[in-house]
């Protein structure tokens, strides 16, 4: 059965309509969860608001278990589901640079776009910066190329690397998420509230 578009079950012509509708739901969920506010987002890093952690972990666990269930029922071919290939040093260095950008800017690309949608001017600056950053990377590709392509490990799955089944991994991940929810609720009660 699924995925539908890569297997031609839904025609290519529909894909942009579906893309727009998907994005609209994405934007609505992000905005109504509070991700149009940078001060709410960075609460995660100062302990006064853990909304990002709750939404992010719940969404990852939901989609992960859903995918495994769909695969088990034969509704989706998991081997056709894309994820970025593993280039170890590029993933690490890219992640570290993004984290620095996150604490300086208060938005990631998705939440920045979401905040632009309701008129946040700091988010406009963030998206302009994002555009410039990608332009700089593209123009300076010769400089980044070695790092970008080093340690190519291919399409590695996390459970394979750990040597456990995907179901067990999902169970462990969900347990970590639940533990994090409990601990962060405890922390939030003890951190001085920030008015924003």
């Amino acid at each position: 059965m699924g995925p539908l578009i890569p297997q031609g079950i839904i025609g290519e012509g529909w894909s942009y309509v579906i893309a727009f509708i998907t994005g609209a739901f994405f934007g609505m969920i992000l905005e109504s969860s509070g991700f149009s506010s940078s001060r709410k987002i960075v609460g995660l890093f100062y302990g006064y608001d853990f909304t990002v952690l709750r939404v992010f972990f719940t969404a990852t666990v939901t989609a992960m278990i859903g995918l495994l269930y769909f695969n088990y029922m034969g509704w989706i071919d998991l081997s056709m589901v894309y994820f970025p290939p593993m280039y170890l040093w590029a993933a690490i260095s890219g992640g570290l640079i993004m984290g620095l950008g996150f604490i300086m800017g208060g938005f990631c690309p998705g939440t920045g776009l979401c905040a632009v949608g309701i008129g946040k001017l700091d988010a406009v600056a963030n998206v302009v910066g994002l555009y410039l950053g990608i332009f700089l990377f593209s123009e300076g590709y010769a400089f980044f190329e070695k790092l970008y392509l080093s340690n190519a490990l291919g399409d590695l799955r996390v459970n394979e690397v750990l040597g456990i089944s995907s179901g067990l991994f999902a169970f462990l991940f969900a347990s970590i998420a639940l533990t994090a929810f409990i601990i962060t609720a405890w922390i939030q009660k003890r951190v001085k509230p920030v008015d924003y």
């Binding site: 992010f56 690309p109 600056a125 459970n159």
Partner: peptide, 28 residues
Amino acid sequence: GGVLFGIGSQLARGCTSGAALSGSAALG
């Protein structure tokens, strides 16, 4: 912050949405 996110997202082949959220959910 946007500039850094722009550079980092290209290196890591995706940002919080494409790499961290979607990639993790697909067990990548």
